[in-house]
């Protein structure tokens, strides 16, 4: 996939930042990644009526987590040599996506074992915070929202548990001298936000499009280490009672061809759909 830097307003300063930490200009970055069903696939609801039937599904790193990983790699390419650590809470298949993160460029992985993955983002945040506490990360990155849960809660919850500054859904980032400036897209406006490091950030799409694994990366991935530990989950107050497909849209119709169909379309929008 092509990366178009100018479009994404991504900026990393030419001069490496100073006074960042004892490691000088190096950034130690954790990227929290979630294993999710490939969004292009159709799926069935499992027999329990509460989850997706995973048989035959392909899984991948959630979209926005890929952008977070890309951002981490770019920051470290500009300000190398730091460290990018991929962290994931999940069951037996989790190492697959950690290795995928390695093949894209992450240096090492942490697998916090929990099967199933709890539905309450707070339980996941608890496990991530317990692990990342006191490890000296300058940045802890999250996706803005996971494509399966649709929640967007784990990042800010983890920040709160760690007592770290947090900026959510950022579309632009600049880091210099231990401080960051980020943009957040609000409805109809852009917020300019400043914050000190270390910090937790959740990443929106505008910042960086994910790169694909390289052959060299795939070879190197095999040798990169994964630390495996049981997840120390936080408490859960939320459970999923049911998972259902939304009602199908009623079959639509082709009103006609070309400009000749316009009057009929207008009539239908007025009298049938009543939106005009």
């Amino acid at each position: 996939m092509a990366m178009n830097l100018s479009r994404h307003y991504f900026y990393a300063p030419a001069n490496p930042p100073t006074n960042l930490s004892e490691r000088g200009s190096q950034l130690k970055i954790a990227v929290c990644i979630r294993r999710v069903p490939d969004t292009e696939m159709r799926f069935a609801i499992a027999a329990d009526g509460k989850s997706v039937d995973s048989s035959g599904l392909k899984f991948d790193i959630s979209d926005f987590d890929g952008y977070a990983l890309e951002l981490a790699l770019r920051l470290n390419e500009k300000q190398s040599p730091g460290e990018v650590v991929a962290v994931s809470v999940g069951g037996d298949a989790t190492p697959e996506i950690l290795r995928k993160a390695f093949s894209i460029g992450a240096d090492r992985g942490i697998h916090l074992v929990s099967d199933p993955v709890p539905a309450d983002g707070f339980a996941i945040a608890g496990a991530l915070a317990a692990e990342l506490q006191g490890q000296g990360f300058d940045l802890i990155l999250f996706g803005r929202v996971a494509t399966d849960t649709g929640n967007g809660t784990v990042g800010p919850m983890t920040a709160e548990l760690l007592g770290l500054p947090c900026v959510t859904a950022i579309s632009y980032l600049e880091i210099s001298a231990g401080k960051g400036t980020a943009h957040r897209e609000l409805e109809g406006a852009t917020e300019i936000v400043t914050f000190p490091l270390p910090a937790v950030l959740t990443i929106d799409e505008g910042i960086a499009r994910a790169r694909l694994p390289t052959l060299k990366g795939i070879m190197a991935a095999k040798k990169k280490p994964i630390d495996t530990r049981p997840a120390v989950l936080g408490p859960s107050a939320l459970t999923i009672e049911r998972l259902e497909f939304p009602p199908e849209r009623a079959a639509g119709r082709i009103v006609g061809e070309g400009a000749d169909a316009v009057p009929e379309l207008i009539r239908l929008l007025r009298t049938e759909a009543k939106v005009l």
Partner: peptide
């Protein structure tokens, strides 16, 4: 998070939440 409908009783709150990029609706219980 991000719910489209809810029901509240003294003990529980149940809510509808679009998941899997809108391909499914989860009923969650708090």
């Amino acid at each position: 998070s991000d719910i489209t409908a809810f029901e509240l009783t003294a003990e529980v709150l149940t809510a509808q939440h679009p998941a899997y990029i809108g391909k499914a609706i989860a009923t969650v219980r708090l």
